[in-house]
Design a protein around this nucleic acid. Structure first.
Lengths: 344, 344
DNA sequence: AATCAGGATT
DNA sequence: AATCCTGATT
């Protein structure tokens, strides 16, 4: 038995818009922790991993793990029947061959009940390596989308170079070539480009990811968050909690930073209400310079998630798949893409 | 000789948009009363009946009855040459083989004169039975359009069920199934769901239908309304006037309603100006529960009239054609559609 | 019918 | 910036 309530249908709509062009079918894996979906894209090149946290649902109940095989095009169609502000309740009985979706207007004078047929999908379970990334770039998701769109005009690939200077996206082709340099400008104490020692410290402390994670969730869940991001879409909760505690105990100096992060959360909330104009700054955590080339086709697809989150984080190490991560109120959406090998 | 002036071309444009996909050609029947058009749709399944009231034209003159056979695609093309705010004057001489359209900008600094060739159309004259409907649902036309569009994703037919609970639209197909329940919420004294006795009372008093009719026309015309809708598009003018007078004399109590109607009209005008956000509530008058199935293809076509009127009224009786009625400032647009026989 | 692009609107 | 509405296109 699954019963999950989302306050605003628009979140699910944006999610589906974000992934439906990459993945046609997938299992919504429903567990006590929440709902996750993990799938290779249709051409089996990119990996999409979505996690919706149980705690972030308006109401959540899942008695036992159940994979709900959904056709994302069908789900998109049905979600189109909801108004953006509708309250959505997802329901599935334990042996269901259908997912029930209930759309209720805020005034409760309109109730839509939809039933979507489910399918059996062989879950190729994908282990995502727990990578320590050499470079982590946080930036405005809208800016990321813009850059991908812009450079896609010029060529099929983009080279992303991350150094102390900032991050550079460059592409070239028939028409000509172009590059966009983003300097760090987060307007924070860590906004300047760090030198190696400082970087190491930041990496060790894992400040930056935490800041982002904390932006929308309890600090105590940071590491669960981290695992979700870096290890597996279906992590073991107990193990994570332990890891979390360890880290917190090991590094007492994290606490002040955590509070700082808390401050950021408030700021982010305020922004969401009245400062939408203010774009998130660019911040870079660099352990090692990276230079990687990716298919713009995929990146532009990933960038379609921009409406979900103001900020996107690019995690990169040389010769390792890129992780593009969007954290939004209800969870996390990740995309993985292997770099092109040569500068083709 | 016909000469009719409409203040805003946009009304005619919306009208044409509303019916041009259903009907390709038709006679504009011009009489002293106004201009009406009645036609089966191209597949001879649905019936479209339009009436533009002489009194609602800015200026109206029609010396003798004349059917102007128009190709609606042509008329649409020509109306596209008018700006929405242009004043439109329709002119036709008695033996005309063409309709003249004059588009004048409000500032009168621009005059467009167009002439559209007319055609001879054998008017298959259609008697519309004067049905007493078991259920009458008034609702936001935009919502009606939305529901039809939404359910059209799922299947070809929609079942409309009207009960004390409210009205339910449901459809199913390959992807799954869906239903939308609208509860009564008119926010009026009659907004709650009535039980049988109350329903009977309301029906007897005919409160609800009058309310609706009064929204845009004089109560005295209620029965003319019925005739226009239910009997003939080309009525004998003299006869009708007599009927009107008779009724006025018969039922003195209608006069106050006339005044009331005027007030309501003003209200509607105000709404158009400042209350566009406020959707009309759902109100249901139910003599008997109904459950009917209709082709969504037709209903979605009918729903294209939504820009004409904030509200739509669905009149239903079991096994009888549905009447979908839009009342707008200048007149009434009605669509009739027979139900599907089985639950196919 | 459905998707996409453009323009208007808030 | 995002949504809505329209027109165009496949």
């Amino acid at each position: 038995m699954l019963e999950a309530r989302v306050k605003q249908a628009v979140v699910l709509k944006k999610l589906l818009d974000a992934i439906k062009e990459l993945v046609s079918d997938g299992n919504l894996d429903c567990t006590e922790e929440g709902i996750s979906l993990q799938a290779m894209d249709n051409s089996h090149i990119a990996l999409v991993a979505l996690k919706l946290e149980a705690s972030e649902f308006d109401e959540y109940r899942c008695d036992r793990n159940m994979p709900l095989g959904v056709n994302l095009a069908s789900l998109t169609k049905i979600l189109k029947c909801a108004k953006d502000t509708d309250v959505v309740t997802l329901k599935a009985s334990d042996d269901a061959d259908a997912l029930n979706l209930i759309f209720e207007s805020p005034k409760e004078d309109r109730v839509g009940e939809y039933e979507m047929k489910l399918m059996d999908i062989d879950q190729e379970h994908l282990g995502i390596p727990d990578t320590q990334y050499d470079a982590t770039v946080s930036m405005s998701s809208a800016e990321f989308a813009r850059i991908c769109r812009d450079l896609a005009v010029l060529g099929e690939s983009v080279k992303i170079e991350c150094s102390k200077e900032g991050v550079t996206f460059s592409a070239d082709g028939e028409v000509g070539k172009g590059s966009v340099l983003l300097r760090q400008n987060a307007g924070q104490d860590r906004s300047r480009v760090k030198d190696e020692d400082e970087v190491d410290e930041d990496e060790k402390l894992d400040i930056k990811p935490k800041t982002k994670r904390e932006a929308r969730r309890d600090p105590d869940e940071d590491d669960e968050d981290g695992q979700r991001s870096d290890v597996d879409v279906k992590p073991d909760i107990e193990g994570e909690d332990e890891l979390q505690d360890e880290e917190e105990q090991e590094e007492g100096e994290e606490r002040p930073k955590k509070r700082k992060a808390g401050g950021k959360k408030d700021k982010a909330n305020k922004r969401a209400k009245k400062e939408d104009v203010e774009e998130p700054g660019v911040s870079i955590i660099l352990e090692r310079q990276v230079s990687l080339t990716f298919s713009l086709k995929y990146l532009t697809n990933f960038a379609k998630s921009a409406p979900l989150a103001r900020e996107v984080t690019l995690h990169m190490s040389n010769d390792v798949p890129l992780l593009v991560q969007f954290e939004f109120e209800q969870g996390t959406l990740q995309f993985f893409l292997a770099p092109k090998i040569a500068d083709e």
